[in-house]
Simulated scan of single mutants.
Amino acid sequence: MPFLGKDWRSPGWSWTKTEHGWKRIIFYGHDMDDIHREIEFPCGDGDEEFAQGVCQLASLKKRKDLYNHKTKSQFVFRDKWIYVQKDSTKERHGYCTLGEALNRLDFSSAVHDLRRFNYVAKLFQLIARSQLTCLSGAAQKNYFNILEKIVRKVVEEHYNPRLVKELLQDLSAALRKLTLHVGRCVLVGNVDVWLRRLDNILRWQRQLDDLHIPKQMCSGVSFSDLPLYTHNKILYNLSDACDIINLGQATPTLHVLSEDRTLWKRLCHFHFSDKPHLSRHSLLTKNDGGVDWKLMYFTLHKRYPVKEQYGDTLHFCRHCSVLFWKDCGHPCTANDPDGCLLPISPQHFIDLFRF
Rank of each mutant, 00 (worst) to 15 (best):
Q74M: 07
T16M: 06
W325S: 04
I127K: 00
K6H: 15
L178Q: 12
H269D: 13
D327H: 09
I127S: 01
A138S: 15
R354D: 05
D192S: 14
L226D: 03
H330V: 05
G289Y: 14
D31N: 09
A101R: 00
Q140F: 03
H348V: 11
K307M: 06
G137T: 09
L163P: 01
Q85M: 09
L198Q: 04
T333N: 13
G289F: 11
I25T: 15
Y304W: 07
L187S: 11
Q216G: 08
W8P: 14
T299F: 04
Q140T: 13
H348T: 13
K153D: 04
I344Q: 06
E148Y: 08
D210C: 09
R261D: 08
K233P: 04
D274A: 14
C242L: 15
P305F: 11
H36L: 07
V155C: 07
G248H: 02
P214Q: 13
I201D: 00
R152W: 07
V76I: 07
Q52W: 05
H36Y: 09
F41T: 01
G248R: 02
T313D: 02
C317S: 03
L147D: 01
P227S: 06
Y229N: 15
A51R: 05
P252L: 01
H348R: 06
Q74V: 02
W194S: 12
V164N: 02
H301R: 07
E157C: 03
D79S: 12
E259V: 10
G21T: 13
D47K: 06
I344P: 00
C242P: 03
L283P: 14
R303Y: 08
L167N: 01
K275E: 14
L187Y: 14
R78G: 08
D338V: 09
W81N: 12
W22D: 08
Q249L: 10
Q85N: 10
R203Y: 10
D292N: 13
F144Q: 01
K6V: 12
L352H: 02
F316Q: 02
D327Y: 09
C43H: 12
L180W: 09
Q125E: 03
L105N: 00
R152P: 01
F27M: 10
L314Y: 03
T253E: 15
F50P: 07
N160P: 00
E91I: 14
F223Y: 06
E259G: 09
I35D: 15
S14M: 13
D288H: 11
